[in-house]
Structure formats: C-alpha cells, structure tokens
C-alpha cells in the first residue's frame, strides 16, 4: 500500500437515513441519488437498515418533540468515526416549520452536525456534494490517528 492511499478513508461509506419529520421531498431525492441517473452506489455508498452498520447518519426534516430522544439514541448507536449530514433546510434551521409547537429544534441543538446541505429539497447532486464534504471530514479524522 502506498502512502497516498493510506490517507483515504479506507471503508466505503455506509449511510443510515433517518427521517425526523420531513415532508418526504428530501427523502425521495435521497432515493433518487441511489437510482441509475445519479447512482451514488458506484462510490460504494449504500443505505443500510440499521445505524450500527453505518458510518454516516443522514437526517431529514425538523426534529419533532417525540423524535428527539430517538435521534439521540440512533446517533449513539452509530460507531466511531461517524459523521452527520442534514439534508434540507428544515433540519438545519427549522425552515418553514420554524414556529411549530411540536418541533424540538434544529438538529444541531440536539446532536453535533458536520455538513449542511441547503435546499428545499436539494437536488440529488447537491446531496452527493454534501457527502463528498463529509468524506473530507472523515479523511481528516483518519489522518490524525
């Protein structure tokens, strides 16, 4: 193995997608990123069914009050090194739901967030670009080790 490749994040990124109350707009764009037109799976990324297999937590939607503890629990279940992406503006800041009585707050008040993908919903390629940014972070963490 060359020194160069040591710097790369060695695993394929596996992603756990969690919906905390979004309108489905972002969710279908995430699925669209997996399907032939954008095909994110060519980078070895895939959606997995449980957080314990995942490297990246992908969250969509504002966090509802009764999803608050579930998000925390899922975040703790993701093994280190991990990263969190928020897709869509309502997860980042509340967006159109900003004065709702059942929203617990933007995601970064609840768990640490690494990358924000603004858009309502973002195009699939914007999500791919967001994943690339997460890649940077994971590589950085790998480099420090």
């Amino acid at each position: 193995m060359t020194k160069e490749s040591l710097k790369t994040f060695k695993k394929s990124l596996w992603v756990f997608h969690m919906n905390t109350g979004s309108c489905n707009g972002c969710d279908i764009e995430i699925v669209a990123a997996l399907t032939p037109r954008y095909d994110i799976e060519r980078f070895g990324m895939m959606l997995v069914g449980t957080p314990r297999h995942a490297d990246v937590l992908l969250v969509t939607g504002p966090v509802m009050k009764n999803m608050e503890d579930k998000v925390k629990r899922v975040y703790e279940q993701v093994p280190d090194p991990k990263a969190v992406i928020v897709v869509g503006n309502c997860g980042a800041t509340g967006g159109v739901f900003h004065e709702s009585y059942s929203v617990a707050g933007p995601l970064d008040k609840i768990i640490p967030v690494d990358v924000y993908v603004p858009g309502c919903p973002p195009r699939p390629e914007a999500i791919i670009y967001g994943v690339a940014k997460v890649w940077l972070k994971l590589e950085e963490m790998e480099g420090k080790k």
Partner: peptide, 13 residues
C-alpha cells in the same frame, strides 16, 4: 402522530 408538525396551527399565524 409521531411526526405531527402542527402545520394547521402554524398556518393560522
């Protein structure tokens, strides 16, 4: 109701 977003109520504001 786990993801009740209170949209109707926000609408009245």
């Amino acid at each position: 109701g786990h993801v009740h977003r209170a949209i109707e109520w926000i609408g009245t504001q």
